[in-house]
Design a binder for these strands. Structure first.
Lengths: 321, 321
DNA sequence: AAGATGTAGTCATACGTATCACTAAACGGG
DNA sequence: CCCGTTTAGTGATACGTATGACTACATCTT
């Protein structure tokens, strides 16, 4: 029933003042506290199981050394990798990082920034309400460069150009576009670039989800001028395209080439493996965290754009003559 | 450059005392503050863009109304669903929820509980160090019932029995087990139950990852007494088994039946779709959060065990005679 | 008319920490 | 032997909030 011990309890146990405890445990006792006194304090703290009260520390210091990563969904290998990169950089600089899922459908009682005391936010541009939390230092992932918020982006246009070049190089002249039904810069760009660089003859949109994508793909593949290749905005949508092809008895890649975007796990779980753009998600996370920490230091880091890499696998081949 | 406004700034702007601001904004002004004064306070707060300082509030109240969900990895649809269920219950009770990935390889500077002030923890038994944070109210997901920590579990044994029954019912007499190379109760149980209920003739272990699973599956399928069915500890491992079968020219399900566990996204992205156990992950999250909130109220909720559901799909069939 | 009750607030304080300003003792130099 | 410096600490305070105790005034009740 005993309350959690405070630094004052430790002080009492060690026979010193609370100030001394604070100094010792903060590692600032250099030349101000005798080594043996320091040992005694540490020993007492250990014995009592003392853990500093974070709320008090945060209040006193006016900062938390913690940043918030806002992701549209937890169920994403992609954001898992972003987290890994961000966490590495944060850890090196003594920052903690917590994650909060946030999207349009969820109507949470509290906005992510109202849940915990944090110093800054790293937010995905997918998902809602990012704009509403501009009072706190913010770096946005994959944001429209026209937006004033500092951004760390992929070179989505370059990636899509690579896909278009690959397919036209193989000889494809009728390309279908399976677009993500999400209103975000990163997907708008994919559509625009593809339309410029490749002979897109038809298009459908789908939620980023397998069965919806299957349905959307079927509408394209059932058209009289069936495309010889489907360019998908996302690997998951590509997985739906595979299912549609299978349903119609089309062989991938010889009857139909399929491409994805992101190179998440399913890309290599599919058969044949998916030709897609590998985005360096982990590096994105690292760069974004670096930019955010710069911002916390009062600097204004430039926007960043990271190139992707075309992964040519088994799902693309020249069209049948 | 102006600092963030405090409740005192709001008080000054509205011409009242700080106490009154606190009362009004906490909604406790019933009968203690004139409605028009309340309006003035709210108006001033809005105008100044006041947001309460969470660190100060947490310090004063001694609690945060926030719980921490510790997951082994972000890249998991499964834990995404757990989160959804937990967040729903938390929201209904006015609690916030933050997420922290935590596993053995990551060597973060700070333990999850040292990053933010929280009231309790919901932790996956996978991943490391859960045991080290027992000073805080805790509920563990899928934990060994022998462990003293309160747990909310799946009926893993029942699920595995269902798979064993399904396969032996189809006539399989030589079953291979592709186990997860993770030392955790939930996987140990799978192995034990399967060995009891089905004719397991061989076994291999693999990391929960596609290519590693493919390699492990190949060692089983290349044996002289090749099994007619592979039971996989996890859907992702099953995806690797598909690839191994494909590499050997084996038809799924007629040359080789494959089963998974979890029913995550890839289960239906695979071709043919995977027979697996659907675990009610969202309900698990909800029940676990309910149990944790009970604990925070000083109660001691009983352990829970949730049944899974056998999803029979295209990856299982009778063996060739 | 005088005490009781109600209304509309204000005052003071504590939560636990980190840090600046201070002090008491020991020591060394001239 | 006295003053300046170093050593080893201590005391007081502020961070911003929530809340129990208090007050001043107005309105009933008998």
């Amino acid at each position: 029933m005993s309350k959690r011990p405070t630094s004052r309890d430790v002080a009492r146990a060690a026979g010193v003042s609370q100030s001394t405890v604070s100094l010792v445990l903060a590692g600032k006792s250099e030349g101000r506290v005798k080594p043996e006194t320091g040992q005694a304090v540490r020993e007492a703290a250990r014995r009592l199981g003392y853990r500093p009260n974070l709320a008090a520390r945060n209040l006193r210091l006016g900062r938390t050394r913690t940043v918030l990563l806002v992701v549209p969904t937890l169920a994403s290998p992609f954001f898992g990798a972003v987290y890994t990169g961000a966490a590495r950089v944060a850890g090196e600089r003594g920052f903690g990082i917590i994650v909060h899922p946030w999207n349009d459908d969820a109507v949470p009682a509290r906005s992510p920034v109202d849940i915990e005391a944090i110093d800054g936010v790293l937010a995905s541009s997918l998902g809602g309400g990012v704009t509403g939390m501009s009072e706190v230092p913010l770096v946005v992932l994959d944001n429209d460069p026209a937006d004033p918020a500092p951004a760390v982006n992929f070179d989505v246009a370059g990636g899509m150009r690579a896909i278009a070049g690959h397919l036209t190089g193989l000889g494809h002249r009728r390309i279908g576009h399976l677009a993500a039904a999400v209103d975000a810069w990163t997907f708008r760009v994919r559509g625009e670039v593809l339309a410029e660089e490749a002979p897109v003859v038809c298009r459908a949109t789908s939620a980023i989800e397998v069965t919806a994508a299957r349905t959307a793909a079927l509408t394209l593949l059932n058209r009289p001028d069936r495309p010889s290749a489907l360019v998908c905005d996302d690997d998951l949508i590509a997985a739906g395209a595979y299912k549609a092809a299978r349903a119609l008895g089309l062989d991938v890649p010889h009857d139909l080439s399929i491409t994805g975007f992101d190179d998440i796990l399913v890309a290599t779980a599919l058969e044949p493996e998916l030709t897609t753009i590998r985005l360096p998600a982990e590096e994105l996370g690292a760069r974004a965290m670096t930019a955010l920490l710069e911002r916390l230091d009062g600097h204004a880091p430039p926007d960043v754009s990271l190139p992707g890499e075309l992964m040519i696998r088994g799902s693309t081949a020249p069209p049948r003559p």
